[in-house]
Computed example of a mutant assay.
Amino acid sequence: MKLLITGGAGFIGSHFVRYILKEYPTYHVVNVDALTYAGNLANLNSVADSDRYTFVHADICDRTKLDQVLFETGVDAVVHFAAESHVDRSIASPGKFVETNVLGTQNLLESARLHGVGTFIHISTDEVYGSLGATGYFTEDTPLAPNSPYAASKASSDLFVRSYFETYGMDTRITRCSNNYGPNQYPEKLIPLSIERALRGLPVPLYGDGQNVRDWLHVYDHCTAIDAVLHHAKPGSVYNIGANNEWNNEDLLKKIFTILDMPTSQIVPVRDRLGHDRRYAIDATSIKKNLGWSPTYSFEDGLKETIDWFANQIQNQPLGR
């Protein structure tokens, strides 16, 4: 199989590129990435010289380039990670999120349709469902109710993907995952930002009262779930991916400082984010039952691995951020 992976130089995308090349020795990967601030080809140093890996520097908003790549490569499937993904940035610059996440996705869908791509997997987020109260879980049937410009842009792209299945009969599949963490993550998201700032002796911000809850999923477990969807899911399907690993932000930061064996005095409350969703929680029953997937990482082990990776980076090659 030949896969086109968009956003393959980013955090989750680069993990998936490496995962596929390791697990499937006959597969070829074409990585299309615009190399924005969050894309880093160093994430792919271990596979850069592989004859089964090809990198193309391109933006998914460039339809002409997409057509050229799909025509020349003849890929069997698209796995679409490329997106603007940071909520704070979407609040400051929502237009960029519409351009990349909505228009870019529609560009990619249309190009894939016209060039006969067999399967199109769209990587989305649980944020499209909005916010939960103290109880309950998101299922695949939960209505979309996005509350941030980022979540709205992803919900919009989800609907375009669905429409290409319903209208054109394309084999599209959508995954909606909970918050990812792990090595290589760009340090603007909560876990890598907090680890890096703690290690550098800087204040670690905590939004509002610190009681916002997220379900945390190790990036490797996310990759195995996408693998299951790629190889076993039905056209038109939607799967939620989560680890039933809920933490409120305050307790999560305290957990990080406990593992670091550092005092929590660096944690500094800051004004809450605009439109900050209170709680996300995924019901992953469907992917477990229908595709046989389950997460393998314990949060303790995954968090220690992530902290060790950032500590090694800071010690041996300061990130300079």
Rank of each mutant, 00 (worst) to 15 (best):
114 L>V: 08
114 L>H: 15
114 L>G: 13
115 H>A: 07
116 G>R: 09
117 V>S: 09
117 V>Y: 11
117 V>N: 09
118 G>P: 00
118 G>E: 03
119 T>S: 13
121 I>E: 10
122 H>Y: 13
122 H>D: 08
123 I>P: 04
123 I>A: 13
125 T>R: 02
126 D>C: 13
127 E>N: 08
128 V>R: 05
128 V>N: 11
129 Y>W: 01
129 Y>E: 06
131 S>E: 02
132 L>Q: 07
133 G>Q: 05
133 G>K: 06
133 G>H: 07
135 T>W: 05
135 T>E: 14
136 G>F: 01
136 G>D: 05
137 Y>E: 12
138 F>W: 07
138 F>T: 02
139 T>V: 01
139 T>H: 08
139 T>E: 02
141 D>N: 12
141 D>C: 05
142 T>E: 08
142 T>S: 14
142 T>M: 05
143 P>C: 07
143 P>M: 07
144 L>T: 14
145 A>G: 13
145 A>V: 03
145 A>T: 11
148 S>I: 00
148 S>Q: 11
149 P>Y: 04
149 P>L: 01
150 Y>G: 03
151 A>P: 08
151 A>C: 03
151 A>F: 01
155 A>L: 02
155 A>R: 06
156 S>D: 06
156 S>K: 00
157 S>G: 09
158 D>E: 10
159 L>A: 15
159 L>P: 10
160 F>E: 13
161 V>L: 09
162 R>W: 09
162 R>K: 12
162 R>Q: 12
163 S>A: 12
164 Y>P: 06
166 E>Q: 13
167 T>G: 10
168 Y>W: 09
169 G>Y: 04
169 G>A: 04
169 G>M: 02
170 M>E: 12
171 D>T: 02
172 T>A: 07
172 T>F: 07
172 T>M: 08
173 R>H: 08
175 T>L: 01
176 R>Q: 11
177 C>H: 14
178 S>V: 01
179 N>Y: 11
179 N>T: 10
182 G>D: 03
183 P>H: 05
184 N>C: 09
184 N>G: 05
186 Y>A: 15
186 Y>C: 11
188 E>Q: 15
189 K>V: 14
189 K>G: 13
191 I>Q: 04
192 P>V: 14
193 L>Q: 10
194 S>E: 01
194 S>T: 04
194 S>P: 07
195 I>C: 08
195 I>K: 04
197 R>Y: 15
199 L>I: 06
202 L>V: 03
203 P>S: 03
204 V>M: 04
205 P>N: 04
207 Y>S: 13
208 G>L: 03
209 D>I: 00
209 D>Q: 09
212 N>H: 15
212 N>P: 06
214 R>M: 07
215 D>F: 04
216 W>I: 02
217 L>D: 10
218 H>A: 10
219 V>E: 12
219 V>Q: 15
220 Y>S: 15
221 D>Q: 08
222 H>A: 12
224 T>K: 10
224 T>S: 13
224 T>Q: 10
224 T>R: 12
225 A>C: 09
225 A>T: 06
226 I>L: 11
227 D>T: 06
227 D>C: 02
228 A>H: 13
229 V>Y: 14
231 H>K: 12
233 A>S: 12
234 K>E: 14
234 K>P: 02
234 K>G: 06
234 K>V: 00
235 P>C: 08
235 P>R: 09
239 Y>G: 04
239 Y>R: 02
239 Y>I: 00
239 Y>V: 00
240 N>A: 00
241 I>G: 15
242 G>V: 00
243 A>T: 05
243 A>L: 07
243 A>C: 07
